[in-house]
């Protein structure tokens, strides 16, 4: 038996950089260094662990939809140990929203062929956390999302979802879409050997035509949402800072009382 895993990974501006918007109110990707979204490293890690724990022949493909530089994210995932990569790149994709992104990803996943899709819990720039659910809806397969523990055996995926009110054990038959949280286990660092090997691994490039998607279904024009304005949050007015010289707790209580919290 074989198991084909597609891991969706996003290339995002570094969260510790000074992120802002471009003139067309899309995320500015030029001024801040990009990288593989940290939350997608957990997805790559779980794919690798499923592969390592399996007797089957497992093939891991990493898939990204993004600009030219997004290749860096694929390279990183390949150096962690994924087998091959697909890069969907097209000028008409600029400004695509979650609904559009899920269309492109779903078409690419179908074209690649899959038994299991693994996504991150959310992208670190958009932080919507909806693409995995949208993929399940589009692909018409079970959604097994926000797992902090995941395993695959005999064509069944199982996992634990820690929700607000309860922790749930989930189970579904493959094919399925899974997303994993940052509680699922630390992602490995690429080894030197992994980095060298990644250079020889195949990276395919597809555009919208390859996926039979019309330009007006995606991009800013095809977007289902419009951002009308983006304003920098006014800096918080500088607060009072005191050094504790034995009365710090009391001084703080005085402040809280003044603000009517006590």
């Amino acid at each position: 038996m074989s198991l084909r895993i597609v891991v969706t990974v996003k290339y995002v501006p570094d969260a510790t950089g000074d992120r802002h918007f471009a003139d067309d109110l899309t995320v500015d990707r030029d001024d801040v260094d990009g990288l593989l979204s940290e939350l997608d490293e957990y997805a790559v890690e779980q794919a690798l662990q499923i592969s390592e724990n399996s007797d089957d022949d497992v093939e891991i493909t990493v898939l990204t939809v993004g600009p030219e530089d997004a290749k860096d994210a694929l390279r990183k995932a390949l150096s962690m140990g994924a087998d091959k990569a697909i890069h969907v790149e097209d000028d008409d994709l600029h400004g695509t929203d979650a609904i559009g992104t899920s269309l492109v990803l779903a078409k690419a996943i179908e074209r690649a062929g899959y038994d299991l899709v693994i996504s991150g819990m959310a992208s670190t720039d958009g932080t919507m956390g909806v693409v995995p659910a949208l993929l399940a809806e589009r692909l018409g397969v079970p959604q097994v999302t926000l797992l902090s523990e995941v395993s695959v055996e005999d064509g069944t995926v199982k996992g634990r979802r820690d929700g607000d009110a309860a922790s749930e054990q989930l189970e579904a038959s493959l094919p399925a879409v899974v997303s994993v949280t940052d509680q699922s286990g630390e992602a490995r660092y690429p080894s030197f050997k992994g980095i060298m090997a990644a250079k020889k691994k195949p990276v395919q490039s597809w555009d919208l035509e390859d996926l039979e998607i019309e330009a007006d279904e995606v991009g800013l024009d095809g977007s289902y949402t419009v951002v009308d304005s983006a304003a920098e949050r006014p800096a918080r007015t500088a607060g009072t800072i005191v050094k504790d010289e034995g009365e710090g707790g009391k001084q703080l209580a005085e402040f809280l009382a003044g603000q009517k919290f006590i």
Binding site: R236, G239, T240, I241, V242, K243, D244, G246, E247, G248, G249, K250, Q251, L252, A253, F255, L256, I262
Partner: peptide, 21 residues
């Protein structure tokens, strides 16, 4: 970010604050 900050050891400041409250 703070409106009010105390530079100090939380093991001193927090219990004192709780007592005072």
């Amino acid at each position: 970010l703070v409106d009010y900050g105390v530079v100090g050891d939380l093991f001193d400041v927090v219990p004192q604050l709780t007592e005072e409250i």
